[in-house]
């Protein structure tokens, strides 16, 4: 009897998996960096080309690292949200300007406003590889000790900010004021 039942059991299992699969996005690849130290780097700043910033210098604070570029449509869409988050002044946002023309990038910030404490310039995209960046916008959450806590691979929205980021940030701040 069991050999006649096997096919329908396979069907039930498959349909179950497909049902779960329908609610997932196969295009989003989670970062292996979560829970690990952020990569070491130092990059020049977009607005103060003489100065540099990097993981080492950013230690000691909880911050967001937002990957953006003027070539990225969705970055324009999320820009207003980033401005709002910056206004709330809960965590600093650092920009990571990826594969861009610095001239255009500066113009972008002048036109749309600058939510970033500072933006680093990764013209050739090499540091981006260390961060596992594969599209933009992407937003990382890094804690005081330089550990990567969370990564968003999509435009930031207020909802995502409230539901995913804020609780994590409050936790981090509570653990290590």
């Amino acid at each position: 009897m069991s050999r006649f039942l096997a096919p329908i059991l396979i069907l039930v299992v498959l349909v179950g998996f497909f049902f779960i699969g329908l609610h997932k996005n196969p295009n989003i690849v989670p970062s292996p960096l979560i829970g690990k130290p952020a990569p070491q780097y130092e990059l020049p700043l977009l607005l103060k080309p003489g100065e540099t910033l990097g993981t080492e210098k950013l230690l000691g604070q909880v911050y967001l690292l937002n990957v953006w570029g003027t070539w990225c449509f969705a970055c324009r869409a999320e820009h207003g949200v980033l401005m709002e988050i910056a206004r709330q002044n809960i965590v600093p946002i650092y920009g990571f300007n990826s594969r861009d023309d610095p001239q255009k990038a500066r113009q972008w910030l002048a036109d749309l406003g600058d939510p970033y404490v500072a933006s680093m310039v990764d013209t050739d995209g090499l540091v981006g590889i260390d961060w596992g960046v594969y599209g933009a916008p992407e937003t990382f959450l890094i804690d005081q000790t330089g550990i990567v806590i969370h990564k968003l691979i999509a435009p930031m929205t207020m909802r995502i900010w409230h539901e995913d980021f804020l609780p994590l940030i409050q936790q981090l701040k509570a653990a290590r004021p």
Binding site: L14, F17, I20, G21, K24
Partner: peptide
């Protein structure tokens, strides 16, 4: 073909 889907689910 389906293994990636299984893992993700």
């Amino acid at each position: 073909t389906l293994y990636p889907l299984f893992m993700d689910a």
